[in-house]
């Protein structure tokens, strides 16, 4: 058993590049889907039925489709429509589009729960729409939505593991190749599990420090 971990250690470069790819994918997807979620949230709350209805169909639709199936469709299905991407583009696109729906729904919940008074005071002070959003709405929204955004980021890290099916060289894929090359399944996959755990603990620590910041500023 110790010998098996020794083999994994000699393959650490592969495992670390998998970890790096998982991290890059997750960070890019988390930032992009958060920003797109911000753009989509006002649409969800729009007074125009056509706008809010379309946004709602997209968000609820994504929430009803398994991520793995969605990734398959983007990678294998879209070429039938003339869109042919490599596995990185497809994987990242799938992660971003899928999680944008979840981020938008999360932000909508936090937005609705915000107190009305500061926003009305901002309007009374003559803030422009953009300035109102940036200075009055956004800071408390981010602080209060912090934990849920953190949870969604952990979900993105776990979703990125599914992209191993389209041969994207992320952490699970790296563990799979080590296991098939040396036949050390337990050592290879348990190391991957610990690395995923470590990543998620880092995200949780980040969320907790944001929470403390929010507590201090209240």
């Amino acid at each position: 058993m110790i010998h098996d971990f020794g083999i994994v250690w000699t393959e650490r470069a592969l495992l670390l590049s998998g970890l790096a790819n998982t991290t890059i994918l997750s960070v890019l997807a988390a930032i992009a889907s958060l920003l797109l979620g911000f753009a989509l949230t006002p649409a969800l709350m729009s007074k125009h039925l056509a706008v809010s209805g379309t946004a709602r169909v997209f968000v609820d639709g994504m929430r009803c489709v398994p991520f793995l199936l969605f990734a398959y469709i983007v990678y294998y299905g879209l070429p039938s429509l003339g869109l042919r991407w490599d596995n990185w583009t497809s994987g990242l696109f799938a992660l971003i589009v899928y999680n944008t729906a979840y981020m938008a729904e999360t932000l909508r919940g936090a937005w609705v729960a915000q107190p009305r008074e500061p926003i009305e005071a901002g309007v009374a002070f003559g803030f422009s729409d953009l300035k109102l959003f940036r200075r009055i709405i956004l800071p408390p929204l981010l602080l209060s939505a912090g934990p849920v955004i953190g949870n969604q980021t952990i979900q993105i890290i776990k979703d990125s593991a599914f992209l191993t099916i389209i041969a994207l060289p992320e952490l699970t894929h790296a563990a799979s190749s080590i296991q098939s090359r040396h036949y050390v399944p337990f050592a290879a996959f348990i190391t991957a599990v610990f690395l995923y755990w470590g990543l998620c603990l880092v995200v949780e620590a980040g969320v907790n420090s944001v929470g403390r910041l929010a507590e201090a500023r209240r």
Partner: peptide, 19 residues
């Protein structure tokens, strides 16, 4: 619980199936 919540199902499944 903390570890399992952080583990992607596909990784867990491969671990069980091969190990």
């Amino acid at each position: 619980v903390s570890m399992l919540r952080a583990t992607p199902l596909v990784t867990l499944l491969l671990l069980l199936f091969f190990a």
